[in-house]
Amino acid sequence: MKPLDPLTIERVARLIVDIDGPFERRGYQLTQLLQRAAWPKPEEYDGSPRIPWLTDVLTSSDDPTAVARLLCRICDPLEYDDGLASADLIRQELNTQLAAEHLAVTYVSGRPVLGELGADGHTAVFTVPDDLEARIRPLVSSEDFLQQLMERVTESQICEHHGAYGLAIIGIGSFTEALLLDILTYRDPTLQQGIAPAGGKPVAPERASFALLLDTARARGWIQMDAHDFMAIVREYRNFVHLRKQRERGVVPDRDTVGMCWGPVLAVLNDLETSR
């Protein structure tokens, strides 16, 4: 995501603070919100007027990824006692402010994801984010592995641009599976000795299935249940590496299929970022 215009940032700050509104946040709640959104070194509220304070915090950041996480977080059902009912009201208002930036937050199986507005000006389009490398760098175990992941992403993009949509979605699944395995064993080195399914015996990490990696990330609270569930389609479409699997499903992948796969991947990435 490119940096937001200063006026957009101010409008977002007003929405977040919501003075005298139903979703008003006190100073300490602003600090807590920044912490939940994994804001880099979140500042303690200093007692000054809240909207200018938050505007300054957002403006002073040189990390558009952090801003994107915050935009998603204020639309997250987890933030509100009644869940999606209130979160979606905030999302609709936020999208009004983001329209001039050609951005929109939408829900992918209940998880908020930021995307670019399509040609119709209403539908969010999901693709490889420009800042993907910077986003996953703090999550993975090494720079060498990061570059291998990005090479797989580049290969998927090449396939998509040349109409090889089936190979593109296989590449997206391969990227996500490898990312999950590295993050799991990096965050919890004991998993290098084996990853156990519920009620089962541990298997070597390199033999762990995509489904087991997702289950393990969910069990540790590193991804939310809805993001976990919606990844099933990405996991299944990755199996189109076996042509019979694609024929059994009767799927003919196209550009929309590729975008449909990037959506849940970005939802999982959001959860991994905020849970680190």
Rank of each mutant, 00 (worst) to 15 (best):
D5W: 02
D5M: 06
L7P: 00
E10N: 07
V12R: 02
V17A: 06
D18S: 12
D20G: 06
E24K: 03
E24V: 06
R26D: 03
R26S: 05
R26Y: 02
G27V: 00
Y28N: 09
Y28G: 02
A38C: 11
K41N: 15
P49K: 03
P49I: 01
P52Q: 06
T55N: 06
T59Q: 12
T59N: 11
S60K: 13
S60I: 00
P64M: 05
A66H: 03
V67S: 01
L71H: 06
L71A: 08
I74W: 03
I74R: 04
C75M: 04
D76Q: 03
D81P: 00
D88H: 13
D88K: 14
I90E: 09
Q92W: 12
Q92Y: 10
Q97R: 11
Q97H: 12
E101R: 07
H102L: 12
A104F: 07
Y107N: 02
P112A: 10
G115P: 04
E116D: 15
T127K: 13
V128D: 03
V128Y: 09
D130K: 15
D131K: 05
R135G: 03
R137P: 04
L139W: 08
S142W: 03
L146C: 09
Q148S: 02
R152K: 09
R152E: 14
S156T: 10
Q157F: 00
I158Y: 13
H161K: 13
G163S: 08
Y165V: 00
A168S: 15
I172G: 05
S174V: 13
S174N: 13
T176H: 10
A178Y: 05
L179Q: 11
L180K: 11
D182E: 07
L184P: 08
T185N: 00
T185E: 12
R187L: 10
D188M: 09
P189E: 10
P189I: 08
T190Q: 14
T190V: 13
Q192Y: 00
Q193E: 14
I195Y: 07
A198T: 13
K201W: 08
E206Q: 15
S209Y: 09
S209E: 08
L212V: 09
D215Y: 01
T216Y: 04
T216A: 01
T216F: 04
T216D: 08
A217D: 08
A217W: 11
A217T: 03
A219L: 08
W222L: 14
W222M: 13
A227K: 12
D229L: 13
F230E: 15
M231E: 01
A232R: 09
A232M: 03
R235P: 02
Y237A: 03
N239P: 04
V241R: 14
L243T: 15
Q246M: 13
G250P: 14
G250W: 11
P253V: 01
R255S: 14
R255W: 04
R255C: 07
R255M: 11
T257Q: 08
T257W: 10
G259N: 12
G259R: 13
W262Y: 10
P264L: 11
P264N: 12
P264C: 11
L266T: 08
V268A: 14
L269K: 10
D271C: 14
L272Q: 04
L272P: 02
S275T: 15
